[in-house]
Every structure is written in structure tokens, then in C-alpha cells.
Design a protein around this nucleic acid. Structure first.
Lengths: 102, 102
DNA sequence: CCAATTGTTTGATTGTCGTCAAACAATAGA
DNA sequence: TCTATTGTTTGACGACAATCAAACAATTGG
């Protein structure tokens, strides 16, 4: 399998980040990660096939919003809070707050 | 001409707002409005035809990010700062800050 | 080694987006 | 009234996005 691509902190692009967050499914993924820290792809229970979810994770990953750690047969995803906050201060917090209380 | 559509404050939708802001041209429009207050459509000097710009203004307007006031032959656009801040506290500020200094 | 599990990739389909030229609408001024 | 001026709308085109099924890859357990 091709290795997972994670852009560096300096490469984070605001339009790309906003675009990635503009999809309801991806926004929901981000909200859950914000609450739970680290989650495997299969544990989200969202109404989409695994192929579709894999696509959404890829969009979030390539925008630099999440990072994916491989452990055995699982992929554990987590928010890149520090990188996002360093590059776009207050943005993630505002988006999470705006997306409603958990 | 059909009257200009402006959604109410309560109807502002986060994904739609994030999507509208995810285009570089639209982001630039928002940045200029944030600095200059109120601007006619033709005064932006952006590299696009008037048809394309009209489209971008429409997307911003229908997402509730700007409001357009008709005066004579001009359309004056301004940011809906108060509505955005009421609905999504801190979001506009974070986006503007993240989009770089003017 | 074999089968089950987890997730990615590919190929196809369907729909939307950004862009432009051209036609249109509305207003202001001569 | 005629003519600029300003902006919107329409129609078209190419590019891209969301979705799924099916095939594939990688690991774990028996």
C-alpha cells in the first residue's frame, strides 16, 4: 500500500482546510475526533460505505486536518490540533463551537 | 431583475459558509470587504470576468456572508459581521487572521 | 497456510463547480 | 429617447467531487 501522505505544518492551505470542513460527513468526523482523541476508521458508524469514508478521511488527511497512524490492521485517526492552531489560530475552535455542542 | 436573496441569521449553515469561504477568489472578496467596509462589485479589480464575479458574489450572498444593497446602478456589498459572529462566534475573525495580513 | 478483518484503490456514474461569452435588465446622463 | 455603465442571467464546456461495488492489500488468528 502506498504510504499515507501528511502535509507539513507549513504547507497547510486555508482554502483547502475550509473546503475539507465544508462537508457535513467530514465535519462530523472532525467533531468526534475532537471529543474522543483517537479513533479507528471503522468506529464512526456513519451512513456511508467504507469506500466513501476512506475517501473522506483522505480529504481530511491531505488537507492536514487529521493524521493517521497505522497499527496492525487498524488506522487510528486524530486531529492535528497543534498544527492547525499554529497555522490558523482559533479556527478549529470556532468551527467546533459553531458546529454545535456535542 | 429578481430580487436579491439574503438568508436570515438563523438560517446560516456552517458547511455552506465554510464552502463559500473555501474559494480563493471569494476569500479575497471577503478580505477586502473586511478592510474597506462597503464596496461596489466593479471595484475589486480581480482577475475574472464580471460574470464570474457576479457568480462569486451570489455564492457569498446566499451563504449569508455578505449583503448587497442596491443603489442606482451599483450594488454595494458588505460583510454580515454581526450575523456571522452571532451564529459562529470567532469564525470570521479566525478566517481573516488565517488568510494573512492585508 | 488459510480465512477473517480492516481499510485503500479502482472504475464507473451522477452531479456540481468555476469559468467565459453573449444576451439581458436597470439606471443615469446627455 | 438614445447611449453608456453596471451587474445579472443563460447556456455551454471542461474539470472536479461524492458515492458505490468490486477488487486489492496488509495484518491477525486459527
Amino acid at each position: 500500500m502506498r504510504s499515507l501522505h501528511h502535509p507539513g505544518r507549513e504547507q497547510l492551505d486555508l482554502p483547502a482546510v475550509l473546503y475539507a470542513l465544508s462537508d457535513p460527513t467530514r465535519l462530523e468526523i472532525v467533531r468526534r475526533l475532537a471529543g474522543d482523541g483517537e479513533l479507528a476508521c471503522g468506529t464512526f458508524g456513519l451512513p456511508a460505505t467504507k469506500a466513501t469514508l476512506s475517501h473522506h478521511f483522505k480529504v481530511l488527511r491531505e488537507a492536514g486536518i487529521i493524521q493517521t497512524r497505522v497499527e496492525g490492521v487498524h488506522r487510528y485517526n486524530s486531529l492535528r490540533k497543534q498544527d492547525l492552531d499554529a497555522r490558523f489560530p482559533g479556527l478549529l475552535k470556532a468551527v467546533l463551537k459553531a458546529s454545535g455542542p456535542r
